[in-house]
Amino acid sequence: MTKDFQASKPIYIQIADQLSSQIVRGEISAGEKLPSVREMAIQSGVNPNTIQRTYSEMERMGIVETKRGQGTFVTENEQVLKALKLRLQTDIIGVFVQNMKELGFSQEEMIEGIQQYCRREQA
């Protein structure tokens, strides 16, 4: 199915981001084989050259490995996966902090707000 993509970001990066969060959430496991470029293109309704770029980019980042004649696999390197998880965390925090700043909250107020929110969640 054709998905909607944000206008301002390259599509190959958006698909890499989607795959990365699926890996972090465990929807795709370490060592698992990713769909072939053509299958992935059909699934997401995008040009196969774009998917090829997604896979190359993820390979450059060490998140996936291409095995000759077998396909593309998620890495089993735990350090890489841990780093990926931390990177996603930083990205999300970055967006949050930016939004809070725009609303005029100070650092202390942000932290205080998060702590309060978490306490309420637990209760």
Binding site: F5, A7, S8, K9, P10, I11, Y12, N47, T50, R53
Partner: peptide
């Protein structure tokens, strides 16, 4: 190139 347009100018083809 569609991806270059997004990468360098932050624009979708429609924009």
């Amino acid at each position: 190139n569609v991806e270059t347009l997004r990468e360098e100018e932050g624009l979708s083809v429609l924009e």
